[in-house]
Amino acid sequence: MTEKNEKKKAVPGSGLVQGLATTFKNMVTPAHTHQYPDTPPELAPRTRGVIALIEENCTSCMLCARECPDWCIYIDSHKETIPAPTPGGRERSRNVLDRFAIDFSLCMYCGICIEVCPFDALEWSPEFEYAEYDLRDLLHEKERLGEWVETIPPPVALDDAAEEPKEISLAQKAAAKKQAALDAAAQPAAPEPPAEPRGSAE
């Protein structure tokens, strides 16, 4: 770089000319920018745009609300008793989610809630077009959060040197266990399909 500087200093005004040459070169090359609303940006699947809620997966365990660094998740739930499935059995209680809301005016987009959710009820979606005229409208209730679900991209394939995702190895282990149990029972029952990588691994 130093020798370049010395070259530049040789003729007075050469720096300006060089700058103008760069400007001219960039003037004749096509623009690097896109016209946003007409050309939507290509976003990576990991992009943290908005948080989607898969309501069926939520057990209202409150882990996300507790781990959230600025407490922007609101959860209300109540317990419901289900009558015993078999006569003489014990009746079960289950949590019913009444309200799940994320205040995106407070959210810091750190993704801790998604990381801690043990049932994968929360996922990132790269959608970002939910600006509002009023700050209060950024409070997304569970219906709105559920609408984002269809925009969740599939997880990206990992690098060749990466370890298998924990979900896959767990599911494989579970499937192998089931298979072994089936083989041991030596019953000609229809073999179960291998467990789904997400959620259904027990």
């Binding site: 500087n5 720096g15 300006l16 060089q18």
Partner: peptide
């Protein structure tokens, strides 16, 4: 080099 060329040797900048 674009950033370099447009400003680094610029006399006004100096």
């Amino acid at each position: 080099s674009d950033i370099d060329a447009i400003i680094h040797g610029n006399e006004i900048f100096h």
